[in-house]
């Protein structure tokens, strides 16, 4: 898994590629706190290059959502592919997050 973090105007983009699983999820969590620390009020998980998520990833997502809400921000799931999208439905996360398909859509959603 690789993560690139871009923070601009209260909005943090986390560009993730590869697998987010039990082993790599702690890195993602650290990246989230890093992004918030750099001034990110809302966090966008750009999952365009992600082909695998396990429950540990969802733990990070929900923790991020709770953190963001404290600052009146939110966590956004961007560009989740059809392979992983069903997992959001299965977990009921489809009702807890805003899903977008591009950077522009994510920016507009804030």
């Amino acid at each position: 898994m690789d993560i690139r973090c871009e923070v601009a105007n209260d909005l943090a983009f986390l560009r993730i590629s590869g697998r987010v699983d039990t082993v790599t999820a702690p890195e993602l969590e650290a990246a989230v706190y890093g992004a918030i620390g750099q001034g990110g009020v809302s966090v966008v998980f750009d999952l365009g290059q992600v082909d695998y998520l396990s429950s540990s990833a969802f733990r990070v997502f929900i923790k991020t959502q709770k953190e963001c809400r404290k600052n009146d921000g939110q966590a956004i799931i961007q560009a989740a592919n059809p392979l992983i999208m069903p997992l959001f439905k299965l977990s009921g996360f489809d009702r807890l997050f805003l899903f977008t398909d591009s950077d522009a859509a994510s920016r507009a959603a804030i």
Partner: peptide, 9 residues
């Protein structure tokens, strides 16, 4: 909560 999701999957 953050627990139980794995077994749920």
């Amino acid at each position: 909560t953050v627990g139980g999701l794995g077994i749920h999957f």
